[in-house]
């Protein structure tokens, strides 16, 4: 492995990561500067509800596609969401595994599974870009940041397919591209919509607390009975 690759896969990553962490600390401090409003009233709603349950339900909401009408109705979109986010998580994980625990990536099955996941994420990214451009409602709300973030993740996923085998001996190009992109990703993330995962625990915490206190969460659903043929 060349010195350059060693640097981009090690020190550069740590620098980018530290930068991201510092910006995030400022970001969270900024968010916490705003006062959180509370629920002063006595709890309302049924016996099975509480603020605590509401918070847990709210956090778990994303893993319960049946809990929201939107995820129920857009199940294909939800599936894409799951695959895409799993791929991003795996991708970040891989940026640590390659320099610090390369043994984990030795079995070919692991490499192939990762490559399939990254390829799927790449395809989903392309499809989402198409959706963002072709659907007038989504196009209207899309910012340059939305397009760029999506493009960045899509290209990054693409680069990861070639980096996953971790074979610098066959040429350092794919790994070099992958690690440089990862570093850029880490630096860019705090300024982009990709940092939504940082806000997610907050938004869902407060929304869940309110909805739990008021007895709306967990949502009770009564579905339409299927018509029976007598």
């Amino acid at each position: 492995m060349s010195e350059t690759l060693r640097f981009v896969s090690g020190d550069l990553q740590l620098m980018a990561l530290s930068f991201m962490a510092i910006v995030y600390i400022f970001r969270i401090r900024w968010l916490l500067r705003f006062k959180a409003s509370g629920e002063r009233q006595a709890p309302s709603g049924g016996m099975g509800t509480s603020s605590f349950k509401g918070i847990v339900y709210s956090w778990a909401n994303i893993a319960m596609p049946w809990s929201m009408e939107s995820t129920r109705h857009m199940s294909f979109f939800y599936l894409q969401f799951v695959v895409f986010h799993l791929a991003v998580a795996a991708n970040i994980g891989m940026s640590f595994v390659i320099p610090y625990a390369p043994g984990l990536m030795k079995p070919m099955i692991v490499v192939r599974l990762l490559q399939i996941l990254f390829a799927a994420a790449c395809a989903i990214g392309c499809y989402r870009m198409y959706r963002r451009l072709s659907n007038p409602a989504i196009r209207l709300i899309s910012t340059p940041d939305d397009f760029f973030s999506l493009a960045l993740l899509t290209v990054w996923s693409f680069a990861s397919i070639f980096a996953a085998p971790n074979r610098p001996d066959l040429g350092e190009g794919p790994l070099m591209v992958y690690f440089i992109m990862t570093a850029f990703f880490l630096v860019y993330v705090p300024f982009s919509k990709i940092s939504h995962y940082l806000y997610y625990p907050f938004t869902r915490f407060y929304f869940g607390r309110t909805m739990g206190h008021r007895g709306v969460y967990p949502v009770k659903r009564v579905t339409q009975p299927k018509p029976t043929n007598i």
């Binding site: 009408e69 939107s70 938004t203 869902r204 929304f207």
Partner: peptide
């Protein structure tokens, strides 16, 4: 209620 992000 239908926003995965909890945007109210």
């Amino acid at each position: 209620l239908n926003c995965p992000m909890g945007v109210d």
